[in-house]
Design a protein around this nucleic acid. Structure first.
Lengths: 162, 162
DNA sequence: CTCGCTGCAAAGCTTTTGCACTAGA
DNA sequence: TCTAGTGCAAAAGCTTTGCAGCGAG
């Protein structure tokens, strides 16, 4: 992976990759990529739509979905499921996993190396080449383990049943 | 975990657990638990609804959702996300992970022990107690790795973009 | 007898799609 | 120019909810 050494694609690289794949660089796509680059990733389609609307109110919600699909197909971005809610999108970059606390919703990124040997064993035993980064890993964070009666944070929850 | 030694709760244990938690054992719940026990797990709400309808057509779709919620809350069942589609439900039992092939949709269950040391390291390094069983692990199965042009199986796909 | 559970209907939310028009290469 | 991409509107899923009646304990 060429991008594994960097945090993520920047605007220029993203547009370049899009162009090279035969896609057109439109106003909507430029804004969407800008927002994703600025946010540093982890936006749902809806969050992205709101953020994009601020910069260009003419971009339609349907365009967000179609563009996310198109950009994912040409390898400019990826989506991850952090929980029960909508997927979140981010520009491709260093492969990593997400630890999501089921109680407070905190998201921690960890390097993929942690699971290297486990994934090798799965490849060896089952012939299955696993890609762990597509889903978050749920659990309980240090803080919430310490305080069992910790109340839930009001925001940033994606995997909570009300 | 008391149920870790067995494949999953059977009807009697499930009803017992429901009753002990103060829940009422109704006709609808009995049928739902029966269907899940017979299926051996991995049913979406919609699949469950169809299967339940065959045995008792009077059970409403909304009851399926409310019952799944209730039964999950009292620890009778759990849900897992195998892919982009709806979650699948199963009676609680031995903790395991699901390998889902992104190309053919095949689902393989593997024991949680594979990841034991990785999860321990996460606990040690980040203080995060991870529970990997809530999401599937996507990747490519042996067969699909062998035949790169393998056509997708028409069914059992849950994590495929059309 | 009481209130937890259910059927029903309707709404809610996210995502997709058909169509005609616009604009990128 | 030529067609990929877009806005718009409407539909399509899937899931939730308010309400009144029923039935489990």
């Amino acid at each position: 992976m060429a991008e594994a050494s960097r945090a993520a694609l920047d605007r220029r690289e993203a547009l370049e990759r899009l162009r090279r794949s035969g896609g057109r660089v439109t106003q909507a796509r430029r804004v969407i990529i800008d927002v994703l680059a600025d946010a540093g990733g982890h936006l749902t389609a809806e969050e992205l739509f709101h953020a994009v609307s601020i910069r260009d109110a003419s971009v339609h919600r349907a365009t967000i979905y179609r563009t996310l699909d198109a950009l994912e197909r040409v390898g400019v971005l990826e989506h991850v499921h952090l929980g029960h809610g909508s997927a979140v999108y981010h520009l491709v970059g260093a492969s990593h996993f997400h630890l999501v606390c089921e109680r407070c919703g905190a998201v921690t990124e960890i390097p993929e190396s942690i699971f290297a040997s486990a994934l090798e064993q799965i490849q060896f035993d089952w012939g299955f080449r696993a890609r762990l980064s597509h889903f978050a890993i749920l659990g309980t964070c240090r803080r919430c383990q310490a305080s069992r009666t910790e109340s839930r944070a009001p925001d940033s929850h994606r995997d909570e049943r009300p």
